[in-house]
């Protein structure tokens, strides 16, 4: 399951041991490539919170996290930003990034 974040609820969503946020946009081709891979990972990896944030619909959210390119993936541990990544990914590349979030 992937949670949809807004500027109003993201702080609450990040109150967890491990979370990853996919910042995406309405007209972003690479975001379309990443979406099903991200969705499938959220079904596969329990207890890691998968969140997505549409920065075209919620510009404040994108500005708050200084999002310059899409898709951007941010990794959080206990609400603290520890990792930044981005770009279209296949499962192997996404799992490599999540490995860094969990174990680096």
């Amino acid at each position: 399951m992937v949670y949809e974040a807004t500027n109003q609820n993201i702080d609450e969503l990040l109150k967890t041991d491990y979370a990853v946020v996919d910042f995406y946009g309405d007209h972003c081709g690479a975001c379309v490539v990443l979406a099903p891979v991200y969705n499938e990972a959220s079904n596969d990896l329990a207890m890691l919170r998968f969140i997505k944030a549409n920065v075209d619909q919620d510009r404040e959210l994108g500005e708050r996290f200084h999002i310059k390119a899409l898709p951007t993936l941010l990794g959080f541990r206990n609400g603290e930003l520890v990792l930044e990544d981005g770009g279209a990914k296949d499962q192997a590349a996404l799992y490599e990034m999540l490995g860094k979030l969990l174990y680096a």
Binding site: D17, D44, M47, Y95, G99, L102, Y103
Partner: peptide, 17 residues
């Protein structure tokens, strides 16, 4: 300190570590 944590998540068979 890398492994001294209250919660570590593992996913046997997925190759994350």
């Amino acid at each position: 300190s890398r492994w001294n944590r209250p919660v570590l998540l593992f996913y046997p068979g997925r190759g994350l570590c």
